[in-house]
Amino acid sequence: MTTPVPGHHHRVAVITGASSGIGAATARALHAGGYRVALLARRTDRINAIAAELGAGALPIAADVTDRPSLVHAAARVREMFGPADVLVNNAGTMLLGPFSSERRDDYRRMIGVNLLGAITATEVFLDQLTDGEGDLINISSVAGRTARATNGVYAATKWGMNGWSESLRQELLPTVRVTLIEPGVVDTELPTHITHDATRANVQKGYDAASVKPDEVAEIIAFALARPRHLSINEILLRPTTQTA
């Protein structure tokens, strides 16, 4: 049983999809920078292990961004243990690429539910905490939010949606909450392994093997944006491996 940490002098960051990849790396980077971190994910074994690795100030919470009640429970738990969240990192996502067809209709609904509606729901649930003080919202989008290509149409649609929604929120929430959009290119994560279309998965994995940014490098960029003085808001960061052409 984790006991509440007294006092609220440390900033509190909530990270969705914290069980691997950019989410886990961001949890580690922010915790190292003095944040209390709440790790939200469905895979409790992984977030429990990361929280045990980090020690005091790390709180694993089982949550699914497609299940609003689980997010409501998570928000209450964060407030109980750490006080209100100062930062929400909308990182949970899935990339189910492949040729457009009825056969993959479940993949399309899954991507929209996780990538776009999941981020919207998490933000709606935690918004009152972010607006309690000087909050930050970090939305993890993608290069695919700027450039679509064959076989990534619905994935790109979720990321284009994330970009437009983020810009609207930026205008609505300033100056109380800063909104930062992170658009990575190829990052060394498990995303390609989720792809259900065999030929597409093999092709995408080749690209990932050829060149990728490390998750901790993205996490460093997130930590940098958060560390800027409040009068400075870094609204959008596009990053790619140097050799990535599109």
Rank of each mutant, 00 (worst) to 15 (best):
T3G: 03
V5I: 15
G7H: 00
H8V: 13
H10M: 11
H10F: 04
R11V: 09
T16E: 10
S19T: 05
S20K: 12
I22H: 09
A25K: 00
L30G: 05
G33H: 14
G34L: 03
R36D: 07
V37Y: 08
A38K: 08
L40G: 06
A41V: 00
R46P: 14
G55V: 06
A58I: 08
L59P: 06
A62W: 03
A63P: 06
A63N: 02
A74Q: 11
A75F: 00
R79P: 00
R79Y: 07
E80K: 06
G83V: 00
V89I: 11
V89Y: 03
T94H: 04
L97P: 01
E103H: 10
R109T: 12
V114P: 01
L116D: 15
L117E: 12
G118A: 10
T121H: 02
T123I: 03
D128Q: 02
L130M: 09
G135L: 07
D136N: 13
I140F: 06
S141T: 08
A144E: 06
G145P: 12
R146V: 14
R146P: 07
T151K: 07
G153R: 00
A157I: 01
A157D: 10
W160P: 02
G164V: 09
G164H: 04
S168H: 07
S168F: 02
L173V: 12
L174R: 15
T176K: 15
V177G: 09
I182A: 02
E183G: 13
G185L: 04
G185A: 10
V186S: 02
T193A: 11
H194K: 08
D198M: 01
N203V: 03
V204R: 04
V204S: 08
G207C: 02
A219M: 09
I221N: 00
I222L: 03
P229E: 11
N235I: 12
N235P: 06
E236W: 01
L239T: 15
T242N: 11
